[in-house]
Design a protein around this nucleic acid. Structure first.
Lengths: 304, 304
DNA sequence: AAACTGTTTTTTCACGATAAAAGACATTAA
DNA sequence: TTAATGTCTTTTATCGTGAAAAAACAGTTT
């Protein structure tokens, strides 16, 4: 694939695609700085996007006037795979290898080999591994290779131990928040989404994982502790891949979890610390159980 | 300084210096692989060391025979500053800037500028910042600069909150360890060192920080949780620099801390969970207090 | 004058290249 | 035949470089 290429323009491509979707809604686009904040990119990138949109006849562009000429067609979009960050590409490849079996604990990781296999430079792989190391799954030997510690039962237990400690504390902090805190409105909105999902669970059960993450992040944020908030990244990463590999009884599991969340939300709203503690404990216990059953007895994880 | 230079040979130089110290003790050096494990380097590096030692007339080297010819002189050693890792150099420079005042929270960090100022490549600075980010003092803006969050009171409080949570749990786990666990011998040895230091506190009070770290790491290891063990890196880093900048009442503070450690050790040996909890809490409370008083009221930290 | 567009500069991201260091393989000595 | 030494190969650490993207500056328009 792309060889010798210094840097992919995925930021531009991704923003372009998102900008296309904006086109449906209006007859003319806002100013360049406004578009920049809207898309989360710099004006330089906004101008590249506008230039191409003019070229392909999507808009007429003359200084402030950016008139939409036609609706975007499917082939106006850049292919999805070209909009991914290098970091995302590397993470996916790495996790696939990790979960594809044959990834025994203790095995050593070769930067050069990984880079060649994925088709990227070694620097990007190194940086990925350094970032990834905080998840506790790999470890660096000074001046030498990385060692895979493996997705073991021990890992899951250590992870959930911290999770439980942090979430119990965060939940208690949440319940103690003053009535006028905006989090209560956030919680109400999440409750509605949960009720909606509960009704449509038969068809939309796979929408749970995303909702789950938003719910728990809201609670963790109440701790007002960066280490607790940041640690949820580790949990989110693990559960993200967990949801992908463990499809057994997914519908049932998610249905139960939605119910537990609703009870948990009720407890939070009651602001009764005893109830909060109980509801939180109950949910975390079943989350732990689900994670543990997907990991075979003290062996590295295999794809289901 | 070193420009255009691809990689410094600090591993070799550091190992060489350590190998010189070995020369005092024996008449002849062991085999190459043995020396490698002793010094923690590869045989390639060992052979470079031996080659130079032969050249400078320190040893006679013929295959297995490595006879010491003379004692090393001070000028045989490589200068200390040439034995540092790039990562160490960058960390020191970075922390100096951070603590030298004028490092306001919210300030942005420029990779290129840092690299130029320290005289290293941008890659090394990037990798350092990624590793450093887990300490919670800096944060990355996607596709853009890093932001300094600052050594604030809030930071210290968040840090100590986690520390207390983790250490109380670890201490309880420690006390519950079976009598035949090797940690009890480790604890006895640390107790002796504490008693020794307590007696010589007037002159050796600055030896405390190293002992402190070893003591707390031993306790944290009893948790058997990688996240707890790894988190001690954050604490150790902060306290390492804390000891450097806050020299006010150092002797008194350390004397008190040694006393608290001894009480803490007694409590652990009693295996009475109530006593352990109390002793641990007491020590952590005064550690927190010490840290907090060195940070001025909700402002970035200034050098004392 | 405030907010925009046009232009230039700076910084980030990612690569290939190269010396240091590790590791593997072949050979030899005890 | 085990464990060393001698030699060769591979990997890691670090740099300089160049395109993508951000940011700063300058000139316009409302």
């Amino acid at each position: 694939m792309g060889q010798g290429m210094s840097k992919s323009n995925n930021v531009y491509k991704d923003a372009y695609n998102r900008c296309l979707r904006l086109l449906d809604e209006t007859r003319s686009l806002p100013s360049e700085p406004e578009l920049g904040t809207l898309l989360g990119v710099s004006r330089t990138t906004v101008r590249s996007i506008l230039a191409r949109m003019e070229e392909t006849g999507l808009i007429a562009w003359n200084k402030r006037a950016k008139t939409v000429l036609r609706d975007p067609r499917p082939d106006d979009f850049f292919p999805e795979e070209e909009t991914d960050t290098l970091a995302e590409i590397i993470e996916r490849s790495f996790m696939r290898r990790l979960l594809a079996g044959g990834a025994e604990a203790g095995m050593q990781i070769n930067e050069l080999e990984l880079a060649r296999e994925i088709g990227v430079g070694t620097t990007s792989v190194r940086e990925f591994l350094i970032r990834f190391s905080r998840f506790g799954l790999i470890e660096k030997r000074r001046n030498s290779h990385w060692v895979l510690k493996g997705f073991t039962r021990a890992f899951a237990l250590e992870l959930t131990e911290i999770r439980e400690m942090f979430e119990l504390r965060s939940a208690a902090a949440f319940a103690a928040l003053p009535q006028d805190s905006p989090v209560w409105a956030d919680l109400d909105r999440l409750e509605d989404e949960h009720r909606l999902l509960a009704r449509e669970i038969a068809t939309r059960f796979n929408a749970f994982s995303e909702l789950d993450e938003r719910f728990h992040r809201l609670i963790h944020r109440a701790s007002h502790n960066r280490f607790i908030v940041d640690f949820y990244d580790v949990i989110a990463m693990i559960f993200h891949y967990h949801y992908q590999w463990n499809k057994a009884q997914e519908r049932e599991r998610n249905e139960v979890a939605v119910g537990e969340h609703l009870a948990y939300i009720e407890a939070l709203k009651s602001r009764d610390l005893g109830k909060v503690d109980a509801a939180c404990r109950k949910h975390l216990k079943s989350a732990r159980h689900t994670l543990l059953t997907s990991i075979p007895e003290s062996r590295p994880l295999q794809k289901s």
